[in-house]
Nucleic acid binder design. Structure first.
Length: 413
RNA sequence: GUGGCGGUAGCUCAGUCGGUAGAGCUCCGGGUUGUGGUCCCGGUGGUCGCGGGUUCGAGUCCCGUCCGCCACCCCA
């Protein structure tokens, strides 16, 4: 039986690398421009890290984690997201002792078990950018602006930024209680789906309103709004985030029912929706997580960050007609059948040592085939190596006969 | 995880009523040409996703399974 890539995984083949490199290169450049430094964490962590931060009731923990025990019976989990691991690393290496905030980013694969589809993978890549150690609303805005800039730089223009504040431990619990009680009072008017949410994740009951039956929508619209229950500190913080976004010229839509899937979020939350229809249009999501570090045993430490799905960003880029130049070499050596190949191979080595990308034929091609291959390789210079001399062919120039002894000097000069 | 649609060459696809597998592109060779493009000729390439069933005979019909896509759920 033929072996295939595991369900929900995919190879990133050479033909796709230029576009990937353009995207990840742009990510690295923009992160560096704003003072974010790269960090890399293990592919797997102690299961407890994700259970405690994402929340035992979250979809990710309940049904999407790749959890296994190793040979020593430790419970380990392939990371479903990068924020918690980065916060763990922040603690592990005592980064709270260094100047705050610590501005960090990573580009890495994430793992979530779920039914795959277009733009939805069990192994997928994310850019994750985090600012840990400051509750300055300017950071929330900076991160949003950073991703907004990335999209613009890549010429992706069809997208929407959804923004909300979901409060903090001072104000949210009271609201959740109020909402639950209010909805419970009208439970008979709700559909089973919404009643289920009421039990597991009351905030989510208000989410995705448009998809619910009209009668249910009516009830939910009349429910108490989260925005009206925010404490003064959260109101002030959110106002500052919005004012900064306005100042930076970042357009957003306030979505009072926007709730994120992980328990660690506080205050600011946001999502970037891409141009593609369908359920997998979220290309980035993020928010503030002021209680996360404390949850995993650190001192009370604020933080804010986002994750962005690279495969989904690529779909958006494709939709916008984005492309990238294929990789090319500099010099191709076409070797005639009765020419001294060892000599050509030595030239190859010398060229490469001099930093010139050079290649030749290894497939026993005919001379015509080798020249075709030279064209494919993108080489601007081709050397046709004959038995006693060579012909130098530069793009757009006339052929130039050369003695073997002069080939290297001409190419290197 | 639930429901629906699909799977034939590396890619895009055709394959009639069930009768022993096809095209274009790609790739390789030859001719033409300005030694690479164009054009012409030829060739390589297949466990018809996999397994079972029905049948004299299955790419084709039936069941199962794997994978993909769409809609839910949820997200990146």
């Amino acid at each position: 039986m033929k072996i295939e890539a595991p369900r929900g995984t995919h190879d990133i083949i050479p033909a796709e690398q230029p576009l990937w490199q353009r995207v990840t290169g742009e990510m690295e450049r923009l992160c560096a421009l704003s003072g974010y430094r790269r960090i890399q964490t293990p592919v797997f962590e102690e299961t407890d890290l994700f259970q405690r931060t994402s929340g035992a009731g979250s979809d990710v923990v309940q049904k999407e984690m790749y959890t296994f025990t190793d040979r020593s019976d430790r419970s380990l989990t392939l990371r479903p997201e990068a924020t918690a691991p980065i916060c763990r690393a922040y603690l592990t290496h005592g980064l709270q002792q260094e100047p705050q905030p610590q501005k960090l980013f990573t580009i890495a694969p994430m793992y979530r078990y779920g039914r795959p589809g277009r733009g939805r993978y069990r192994e997928h890549w994310q850019l994750s950018v985090e600012a840990i150690g400051s509750d300055d609303p300017a950071l929330d805005a900076e991160l949003i602006h950073l991703f907004d800039t990335l999209l613009r730089t890549l010429a992706v223009t069809e997208y929407e930024l959804k923004l909300n504040s979901i409060g903090d431990p001072n104000c949210r619990p009271a609201y959740v209680e109020k909402l639950s009680a209010w909805l419970a009072g009208r439970a008979s008017e709700l559909d089973s789906d919404t009643r289920g949410k009421l039990r597991t994740s009351p905030l989510r009951a208000l989410d995705n309103l448009e998809a619910k039956p009209p009668g249910v929508q009516e009830v939910l619209r009349a429910a108490p709004a989260l925005g009206d229950s925010l404490c003064a500190a959260c109101v002030e913080h959110f106002a500052a985030v919005r004012a900064t976004l306005d100042a930076l010229g970042v357009a957003y839509t306030l979505v009072p029912t926007l709730v994120r899937g992980l328990d660690y979020y506080t205050r600011t939350t946001w999502e970037f929706k891409g141009p593609l229809d369908g359920a997998n249009s979220t290309i980035s999501g993020g928010g503030r997580y002021d209680g996360l570090i404390e949850e995993i045993g650190g001192p009370p430490t604020p933080g804010v960050g986002f994750g962005a799905g690279i495969e989904r960003l690529l779909l958006a880029l494709e939709d916008a007609g984005g492309s990238a130049e294929p990789t090319a070499i500099d010099v191709f050596l076409a070797v005639e059948p009765d020419a001294p190949r060892e000599l050509a191979l030595r030239w190859l080595s010398e060229l490469r040592a001099a930093g010139i990308a050079a290649d030749t034929d290894y497939a026993g091609r005919s001379l015509k085939g080798q020249l075709t291959q030279a064209g494919r390789s993108g080489a601007h210079t081709t050397v046709i190596v004959g038995p006693t001399e060579a012909v130098l062919r530069r793009q757009g120039a006339k052929d130039e006969p050369l003695a073997h002894a002069d080939v290297l000097g001409t190419l290197l000069g």
